[in-house]
Design a binder for these strands. Structure first.
Lengths: 158, 158
DNA sequence: TTTTTAACTTGCATAATGCAAGTTAAAGGG
DNA sequence: CCCTTTAACTTGCATTATGCAAGTTAAAAA
């Protein structure tokens, strides 16, 4: 697979294509931060407990933006701060993250435990959980992202 | 995240835990080969169009086995050949692969196209597709893996 | 017995990562 | 206005992972 820098697909396989974009250790953790943990700023990602270093974070944010997975606006209170948020394409990664989380909880229960923040969102069914997460994002975006209309899930195919 | 060699968890987050095990470029492609493409031998993985090199393949097979995601038996026709197959834990990664594939087909349609082999398995609903894939694996295992009873999916939680 | 072949190793060059220490420009405070 | 702080990056450099080609080993085939 080699360099994710160039984002040149090696194969037309959907799985290989997807992995070329999100198949590294940090990208999906950043998406997780935005999706589940309410993080939106550079400093919030840095202070996550996995300890990403600033050069890698900077690099990944750039690549995720280039791929249309995230976007950014300047913080309303300060021009030197940025607020990152998921595009519809990025939001749809929730299904990938759910699958990974579910797999870990089932097959590595001794290691994996749910964060309190996430557990509190667990209302009932998986669908309700997804809806809760996306609604939270909508509310946040309505407040911070200018001109952001409530988004609808793109999901339907396959 | 650093070394996947030591498999030491950095976090109890299910997503981070999962990514520690399968969050590299090659592991999920190997699982894909076994799950969707009917590949079971070292040489078959090597000849895949993504072009994994033999040292990496050797390393990943070892790690996947150590994680209980795959297992191996010696080929019935030859003691120097091995047949690799997915454990129930490995099979359950089908949900992760489905999510990634689906995401790619929706959000990167210009790059991602389904393999013929996979397309032919697409009967109707997603559930039927999963069932078809798993049934194929059962049939293969019944033939090659001694003492392998038909497995049932572990999926239910979350 | 000699030659193939499958499945690995090994060595070495290149690329990606981690870590610490800058850098730059906006905010805030006096 | 000037000095300090801070957010978001860069840069340099050591460490680690990856890619590639060339072995190695032991079982099969000829």
């Amino acid at each position: 697979m080699v360099s994710k820098i160039e984002h040149n697909q090696r194969t037309s396989c959907p799985i290989a294509c997807g992995l070329d974009v999100i198949g590294d250790h940090w990208s999906l953790l950043i998406v997780r931060d935005m999706l589940y943990l309410g993080r939106h700023e550079f400093s919030e990602f840095v202070s996550g407990e996995e300890g990403i270093s600033t050069n890698i974070l900077s690099d990944r944010l750039q690549k995720l933006k280039a791929q249309g997975i995230i976007d950014e606006v300047t913080h309303p209170h300060s021009k030197r701060r940025k607020l990152y948020f998921l595009t519809p394409k990025g939001r749809d990664l929730i299904h990938v993250l759910m699958a990974i989380g579910e797999w870990s909880l089932i097959h590595m229960p001794e290691n994996a435990k749910m964060a309190d923040k996430i557990e509190s969102l667990l209302g009932g069914t998986k669908e309700e959980f997804v809806a809760n997460v996306l609604r939270e994002l909508d509310e946040w975006e309505a407040q911070y992202v200018i001109g952001a209309a409530p988004r609808e899930a793109a999901h339907s195919a396959l």
